[in-house]
Amino acid sequence: MTTAPADKALPEVLASIREDFLALPERERLQLLLEFSRELPSLPAKYQSAPGLLERVEECQSPVRAFAELDDEAKVHLYATAPEEAPTTRGFASILVQGISGLTADEVLNIPDDYPAWIGLDNAVSPLRLRGMAGILSRTKRQVREQLAARSS
């Protein structure tokens, strides 16, 4: 498991999620991930009717789509879909949606790229699944950077 460097403070929600996972014995962490999978928020109506607006996350084995949107105050709102029959992937998407939504663009861009490794699931899920969560995070950051650049031009 990767430990958080002292100079890399996590946003409060992501830090709390990490603490929740690390407080459990390894064998119970997967159960918490499954609980997160049941908490993935539904898409807003504007995305339900146009799912193509969400970007496919190729690193995920399951068909996951995600989109980070900046509001007028540069707060990030992350939306994602993942099939119910893929609870691990859906759980990862839910963690990021819940942990990122409402953060500032800078806070999102400062989330360590290896955050998925910080929650202590190394032995509970495959490296391929952890790479999928990292893929959701990297796409989110890229989308935020692109929207910030578009506002600047």
Rank of each mutant, 00 (worst) to 15 (best):
E35T: 10
Q147S: 13
Q143I: 09
T89P: 02
G52V: 01
Q98S: 12
L33T: 04
E35G: 02
D7S: 14
R129D: 11
E55V: 12
S152T: 10
S49C: 07
A45S: 14
A149N: 12
S16L: 09
A4G: 03
S101Y: 03
A23R: 11
A6P: 08
V108F: 02
P87N: 09
P11N: 04
R145Q: 15
R151M: 13
G52F: 05
L128V: 14
Q48P: 06
T140F: 01
S101F: 05
Y47L: 15
L54Q: 03
S126N: 14
S138Y: 02
D71L: 05
L121K: 00
E59P: 00
M1E: 15
R90S: 10
R29M: 12
G120Y: 05
G91F: 10
A9E: 15
E26A: 15
D7M: 06
D72S: 15
C60G: 04
D7Y: 11
P25K: 06
E85N: 13
V57Q: 03
A150D: 11
R142H: 12
M133Q: 10
A149V: 12
I100V: 14
A105V: 09
D71G: 05
D71I: 08
P83K: 08
E55Y: 05
L32E: 02
V97C: 01
E73P: 01
S126Y: 08
E26P: 13
P116S: 06
V97K: 00
D71A: 04
E26N: 09
S94L: 10
D71F: 07
A23C: 05
F21I: 12
R139L: 15
G99W: 08
I111F: 02
S42H: 10
R38Y: 08
L103S: 01
G91V: 09
L34R: 10
D113K: 05
N110F: 00
E19N: 05
E146M: 07
A45N: 11
P87I: 06
I17G: 01
A74S: 14
P25S: 08
P25E: 13
E84S: 13
E84M: 08
L78C: 04
G91I: 07
A66H: 03
P41K: 02
A149F: 12
A74Q: 12
E55T: 13
D114L: 11
L53A: 11
I136N: 03
A80S: 10
A150E: 15
P25C: 07
E39A: 12
